[in-house]
Every structure is written in C-alpha cells, then in structure tokens.
Design a binder for these strands. Structure first.
Lengths: 247, 247
DNA sequence: CAAATATGTCTATTCGTATAGACAACCAAA
DNA sequence: TTTGGTTGTCTATACGAATAGACATATTTG
C-alpha cells in the first residue's frame, strides 16, 4: 500500500490512480507480456476499493493504453512514454525519431491575426502586427504527442502554411524562405490541467495534466523567427535538457 | 464565460477554478489594489454556481494566496509566480535572487543509504554504493518554492550535511571539498499531482500539480557530483531555459 | 474436468461535489 | 444615512465518487 493518494483534494482517487498507472506502473512493468497486477492487488497497493481501481483502468482502456481480458488480466497495449529533448538545436523529428515510428506534424488550422502581447514580445514585433498562426499536432507511434500553436511574422512568412502542409515540418518550410538553420532561443515550462480542447486533440482522458512550453526560435544571429506554445501529455512525455559542459 | 472546465473528469470544478485563478487571473489582474473579480462575476465567467467559486477561493485563501474581506471583495496577498532558470550554471539563489526576498535552503533531513538504480546511474556509481541523501526545502519570499532530494557519493562528501546546514547552500558546501564550480549536466522534467507529503511540505492546496526535475550536476570535467530530484509547485513556478545562441 | 484466479455486473450505502435560492452581515460610495 | 454591491451562512436537492459485499462469467493451470 503506497499511501500516495489524497482524499478530499478535488482530484478523484480514480484519476490519481490512472495517472500513477500511466506514468509509473506501465514503465516499471516486470511481466514480459505487459500484464498489469490484478485489480485486487492494485486496490491493496493503493489502499482503495477494487471498484475505484476499475474506474481508473476503464479510463485508461478508453484512452487506448490498456486492454482488459475477461478472466485473464489487464495488459499494456503500448508504452507511450517518450523523452523529448529541449536542446538548442532540437527539432521534433530529431528528438523523437529514434524512439517511435511516425513523427510528422499535421496542420490543424492556419490563420492571420494581430499579434497579442506575448507573441509580439517573443517575435520582437509591435503588438497588433499581423502574424501567421499555425496550429499543429505531432504524433509519435500513431499517438498525439504534441499540440502546438506557432506564430510567424506574416509579412515575411505569409505562405508558411502551404509549405508546412506539404512537408509536415517547420524546418523544411523555413528552408523555402532561405533559412537553413535556427535555434531554440528561450523556453519556459509550466504545467496545468488539460482543457477540454486538449483532451480531445491529444486523446487524453479527462482531467489529465499537460506540460506546456513557450518557446522562441531564432536565427543564429538571434533574430526571432517563431514563437510557439506547445502542450505535451504529462503522463506520456518527459522533457529533457542535456548540457554540453565543455562549451 | 470561458468554457475551459470539464465535468465528470475526476478533477473537481472547484480545483480547476483554483488552478486557473492561481496561474492566470492573479497574473493578469487589472485592479491596482489586487482586487479579484467578484464571486458572481467569476461564477459567470466559468459558467458555474457561485458556491463552486467560493470553494475554490476558500482553498486558495487557506493556502495564503488570497484574502477575502466580508462585504468588500477578494484580494491577492502575494503574486507567488517566479521564473526558475535551468541554465547550465544555475544556482537556486542566483535564479530566484532578484525575484524574491529570502532564498536559502533549509535542511529537512540527511541520511546514508545504498544507491538505488536511478541514483547510481546518475552518479556513475555501482548500485548499492553508500550515498549521502539530503532532503531540503528552499523558500522564496517566505514561501516554499522547491522540495529537493539530493544524493552525493558518501565516500567523498560524508559531512556535506553539516556544511549545508550552516550555509543553506549546496554551492558553499561543495567549496569545502575544493569544488569551486559545477554545472547542470542533464535535466529531465515531468509533471504530476502532488503527493500528500508534498502538499504539506510545499504548503499546497490538496490536488495541486508539481513540476518534477531529475538533474545531474557535475564538475567542469563532466564528473557527476550530485543527483537531485526537485519538486516545484506548478501554479507558482515556471521553469526557464535561455540558450546562448552564439556559443 | 475441476480448481483457482481473474474480470464483469449488480445492489446498497455514504460522502464529496455542484446547483439553487434566500437572506443576513458587511463595506464603500453617493 | 441610504443605497448598491459584496461576502457569509443556511437549507434543500441531485449527481458523482468511493466503499462494501455478493455473485456471475471467463481463463488458465493442474
């Protein structure tokens, strides 16, 4: 019984258990076939009723993470945890490439809009300047891993959306504008509960936690190119920073 | 009415509202005196009953973030949001120093124990080697901002705990061993719900989210010195990475 | 096949969450 | 002092969350 659960917290026990199973149990599974401990064993471990565990397992099954077999047990369908590097030259495809299968970005929508304060600040533009907004979803292993909104100076990158749709890559799209290289200039990270829209787009179970990064990408000269807000499912993603000490 | 709340999610509406107020509203307050919108206005904005908003406000008041004045309104007592830099040479006191008042670490406990897999891997030791474990809490502005557990090679840093207690600083303690400089070698970041212990130690409201970093600090030569797991209250802390492009 | 073990379903009860409305108590400004 | 707006408290109701126990049904193993 690992008494890590809190009652009367505003977060239901079944949700805490679902988070725990998704982020801990699944990664430390001993069974070679990916079989989870039984419902009764899990109930004992968390110190709750078996029905509460079942609610958690049902949520994860509906999410596609687990499969329960009547009379047999519960099995892990996939181990969705990936490490996402936040290095200075990180690209999504670079980082995830060796950990999962498919890795292209998919354009959800694009539009022109006036820059809000944050965006203008990040891109070093005046607030209200027209900017191009791209909403994208990236997948790893067929499952959504990032939900990203990016802004670009509309005066310069008006047709970004077309290039991105064709290639599924910001890097490739920027090459059409003669930008051969760019860098992660600054990144801010926080975490919160997922919104309704994020639940749907990232195929999360309701009440899940998302990691959120606000990043500015820039040319080697430091000129801002892209301001982006990216949301990761916290139970499936660990962000990683590797520092080159001898720099 | 910003319909960002989800029902039947396993996360109570009052908790979602508390998180939202803590991380959004408080930062974007218009009123110069730090007065929040009224309960009825908030209820309308979130599309919930006034009593639900009151539950959220009560949680934040008990946490010390807000103060409600009968017949007047609700006021922000402190804006607890700090940006915590994760640069390669970051020290806690360096990063938080200019954003808040007090900033020293406090030793909660220290002990010798055999290194577990993660710790051994991070410190490049064999699993089971004796390591010194320090449990510390750092505060900014009088409020807990980090809850950290660090491990050091016990053969080398046996009396770390004493030095740390006296100075409240890992950096200072390491100097006693002739280590003038050290660097953040690698950092991994994820997020989850806070445990019961973390609720108490970080003075969180129950059900809060914590950002968790697993970091290895090393000498300039790359020799691992410290493996640490640090937990930050997600509603009060944003982690930040600034990259020096021209490096 | 039989036994042991696992998940699936059902009923019942208790407590936390959320809504609804009414009214009291209090404060600030006209 | 009066008025309007705000928080505080109370009652009532409905539903979700969690517990408890019993039993059905399916699978695996001996």
């Amino acid at each position: 019984m690992e008494q890590n659960l809190q009652r009367r917290s505003g977060v239901a026990l079944w949700r805490q258990i679902a988070d725990s199973i998704s982020s801990d149990i699944v990664r430390n599974i001993q069974d070679p076939n990916g079989k989870l401990p039984g419902e009764i064993a899990l109930a004992a471990r968390y110190g709750v009723n078996r029905h509460t565990v079942r609610t958690a397992l049902r949520a994860l099954s509906e999410q596609g993470l687990l499969e329960t077999r009547h009379g047999d047990g519960t099995y892990v369908l996939r181990k969705p945890h990936v490490v996402y590097p936040l290095g200075r030259r990180t690209r999504f495809s670079d980082g995830i490439g060796d950990q999962a299968g498919a890795k292209r970005g998919r354009l959800v929508s694009s539009m022109l809009e006036p820059a809000e304060t944050n965006v203008a600040l990040g891109l070093a533009l005046h607030p209200g300047t027209q900017v191009l907004r791209l909403d994208t979803i990236s997948e790893a292993d067929g499952y959504p891993m990032t939900r990203s909104t990016s802004w670009f100076d509309a005066g310069r990158f008006a047709t970004m959306a077309d290039f991105f749709s064709r290639t599924g890559s910001i890097t490739a799209a920027l090459k059409h504008y003669g930008i051969e290289d760019y860098f992660r200039k600054s990144t801010r990270i926080h975490a919160r509960h997922a919104t309704t829209a994020e639940i749907a787009e990232l195929k999360l179970s309701a009440g899940a936690i998302v990691l959120v990064t606000h990043a500015v990408n820039a040319t080697p000269e430091g000129e801002p190119l892209q301001y982006s807000i990216t949301r990761f499912p916290a139970d499936k993603v660990t962000l990683s920073i590797e520092t080159d000490i001898a720099q």
